[in-house]
Write a protein that binds this DNA or RNA. Structure first.
Lengths: 347, 347
DNA sequence: CTGAAAGCGCTTACAG
DNA sequence: CTGAAAGCGCTTACAG
């Protein structure tokens, strides 16, 4: 008879399920044997396995992952840090991301934070000894980056940049995206260009604008108007449109920093000012969220290669977990232009 | 000098942060003292506290929540189980829910499952010894419900029903919602009614339809057409509209089981068939997702009292965690009709 | 293949 | 207020 001394008899606190000790006692094997049955790859005789499994089933035993994590030093949990998100793009991101992670045997702990709380929230994530962290719509302060480096937790920035030497990055090539839009507008004969910015401080906004403006200039044009929505929302798009379209001479081509803004601009132009789109005004967005394809908008937009972004993020994360000392990865994924009817076609 | 024998000297594995033992040794106190400093409400002298805090800071010590969970038997994690969600309503739910939970000191572990995987995924959640579970867009099989009952994990169903005696429920009163729509249509003089169903097997769909049809009958009317979109999406709405609106004599009032379907129906009617909305056809949805208010749709809809639903869920959850033997709660929240221009006004 | 033992990093009576 | 000790439920060398 094996020893299994720790617990007094069959106690097992009322509110808790059975433990390995309970199973071991009833099955007449050691606690280690029970552990092995539930550890893939461990060597157990068929007889032991059967007996343990049967007792475990009878007792409703389930391994306590928390205890396992404590000794194995791995939780199989990934922290996904998102900022207050109104954007369907990020809802989708969470959706696909959690699913893809689950396929790899990982679970997702969501940290939903205001930008300012990052400094507090992230250390919390660390306390849970997550196996990795994905940061979305948030940038890492150098202090935090350092703390992460010290904790040796792999961090992947999603659609954000940083070049601190140990933070991995997976992002859409926003500069290239901005250039696609400039080319599309110019190729189809537009010549009064406007840009409606989203979050001024975000790298996504900066890069999209930079790509757009620089390509305009390369091809001998320039930006006529610049308006700021201030955030990536439909409502902000409406308001920006109101300001932008009260100009005496209107632009004939507007690039909006994301789709939601673009939809706000379209609706304001169409329903408040009776402007014909695309006859009088072409509008292009960024993201290709589902509603961009809706008949009421049919928005020309720069599609973020969603699946690729998520897949790359998972892959980078898995690589980093496997080899924490591997090289710092920086994956830039090319976007594509999806031409729909909110912008004039090539002439 | 305290003992702290377990560890050999200052080892602390290379890949890990400092532990209480490391801090204790350097601060010249016992490990228990360090623990007390990080346990709110424990009694520690000011001097000890200062010394420990200073050393902890110097070493970058952070409590290991996993270890704490193992002994305290509480993870401060809530499992949120969602089904593959395309609906912005649920994206919003996750958003608000995670935030509200964080305010209570809980974190959210997201389980994103296909309906069929529920049987596998939920036991996983249990293995993480989460403090509670919220189930969204999924129903609990009796086998699972029993397993949960045995695990003594509080479970709250969000917008789903079950009456098994131990599962809490927080839901919008979908039947009342359906009645609101019937009344609105009848009061404004419509008389050929159609219903476009979403997911046939969901209790939300069943109740909304039931409320709608029963109120029609109460007031001497009946349903003229019933079409099924089969799922709660825009695309399904388009297809359902195509089938529904090829009838020789059209309905003049369509109730769609949710907003996304309604938008699909509006777009199909308007852009493919040139039907005037609301002059020729009134359409009402359900949810009041953000895009329902967009100028291009301006959808009359039944607003789910979002904040109340989330608040109630959190509250029920907290109550159940505090008193696992408390009564089983069943909170039904009344929806309201938001009148916009996709439906004719009272005559 | 299997058991005894150590240990993961904590909390919490217990005794002072 | 404080330390010594037990224990949470596991995994994993170690020795057979």
């Amino acid at each position: 008879m094996p020893s299994n001394r720790r617990r007094k008899s069959t106690s097992s606190k009322a509110t808790q399920g059975a433990s390995q000790i309970d199973v071991a006692e009833l099955a007449g094997v050691s606690q280690a044997a029970v552990s092995r049955v539930f550890t893939p790859g461990s060597s157990v005789s068929d007889e032991t396995r059967q007996r343990v499994l049967s007792v475990a089933n009878q007792l409703g035993y389930r391994p306590n992952v928390i205890a396992r994590s404590l000794v194995s030093n791995s939780t199989n949990i990934i922290a996904l840090v998102v900022k207050r998100f109104t954007n369907p793009f990020y809802a989708h991101m969470i959706q696909d991301f959690t699913r893809a992670l689950q396929e790899q045997g990982y679970w997702t702990l969501v940290f939903n934070i205001a930008e300012d709380d990052l400094e507090e929230a992230l250390p919390m994530a660390l306390q849970y000894r997550v196996d990795g962290v994905v940061l979305t719509s948030a940038t890492l302060s150098s202090k935090l980056a350092e703390e992460f480096a010290r904790s040796r937790n792999p961090v992947v920035l999603f659609n954000r940049y940083v070049d601190d030497g140990h933070t991995h990055v997976v992002s859409c090539d926003n500069i290239a995206g901005g250039k696609l839009v400039a080319d599309a507008f110019i190729d189809s004969g537009h010549n009064r260009f406007a840009f409606v910015a989203g979050e001024e401080l975000s790298s996504t906004n900066r890069d999209r604008e930079h790509g757009f403006v620089s390509r305009l200039q390369e091809r001998g044009h320039q930006l006529t108007y610049r308006e700021s929505a201030g955030e990536y929302s439909y409502e902000a798009g409406l308001i920006a449109a109101e300001r932008l379209l009260k100009q005496k001479s209107l632009p004939d081509a507007i690039f909006c920093a994301n789709d939601l803004i673009a939809m706000g601009v379209i609706d304001y132009a169409r329903h408040k000012l009776n402007i014909k789109i695309p006859d009088d005004l072409s509008i292009i967005g960024f993201d290709d969220i589902p509603s961009a394809a809706w008949l009421g908008y049919d928005l020309t937009t720069v599609r973020q290669p969603f699946g690729k972004l998520v897949d790359n993020t998972i892959q980078v994360l898995m690589d980093a977990i496997e080899d924490p000392n591997g090289e710092v990865l920086n994956r830039l994924v090319k976007p594509t232009l999806i031409a729909r009817s909110s912008s004039r076609k090539m002439e």
